[in-house]
Design a protein around this nucleic acid. Structure first.
Lengths: 127, 127
DNA sequence: ATTAGTACTATACTTTTGTATACTAGAATA
DNA sequence: TATTCTAGTATACAAAAGTATAGTACTAAT
């Protein structure tokens, strides 16, 4: 469907495929940083609360978790549901877009594994 | 092939699919930052020199370009070829792993575009 | 009145990433 | 001898990302 090479024809680089560039930078922004993927990962098996996220994700501070959740919500990846109980209950769930990331994450894993075998072929230090 | 959901079975999160996690973080690291993709993009149509990269990529400073090229080389995404001429000629080219990123980049573009249509459905500000 | 549970926020700090501007080295050319 | 070419490096600074640690607001139970 979309061929990235198009993006890179010398003539086209600057002018043309704005929507591709935007889509790509959107995607990068969504996954950007140390904590986004672990959070998305934790959400893939359903709704989950703040404290549980904090327990699931090793070494994340409440500050970072809070900040990242806000960004993910703003970007339309997760939804924040408030239940008016006492003590208040808040749950985070993935939106459709968030769920759709699964395929992309799989592609990333595939590339990463392929890359490791390539790298070993070129006798690259394996950790 | 690789199902990311596996990664997220509560029981497995911490212990099991280390190779998946490693592969995924490898991939994130490779694309990470402001300049990696533009550089990879510029390299997709063949070998290119430092100064040409600097001209191709808007506003990149030689310091950042140099730093990013080193990282990409270390990560096995590009190769640096030195020709012993005067003045010295140095060319950068993608490795096989680097070329293989095309498919992944396409997946990212696809997700980004899908996400934009989803976002518009939920009346999210477009830009 | 005190303690505990939920979901965070505040403050100060360190580290990483990025910017601005100038400079270097080695050899050929004018 | 001075300038030009390629491919960067050096230094100082600013901004963004992340860490550490403590504290807040609300309510319910003890």
């Amino acid at each position: 469907m979309s061929d990235f090479k198009e993006l890179l024809d010398r003539d086209k680089v600057q002018q043309c495929p704005r929507h591709y560039v935007l889509a790509l930078t959107d995607t990068l922004n969504v996954m950007n940083g140390k904590w986004k993927l672990p959070i998305i990962a934790s959400l893939l098996h359903g709704k989950i609360r703040f404290k549980d996220l904090q327990n699931n994700i090793d070494k994340i501070t409440p500050r970072m978790l809070s900040k990242e959740l806000k960004e993910l919500e703003l970007n339309g990846i997760i939804e924040r549901k408030v239940y008016n109980q006492t003590p208040v209950l808040i749950e985070y769930i993935l939106t459709e877009s968030g769920k759709n990331l699964t395929g992309l994450i799989d592609s990333m894993i595939d590339w990463g594994m392929l890359h490791r075998t390539e790298a070993i072929k070129s006798s690259w230090p394996n950790d």
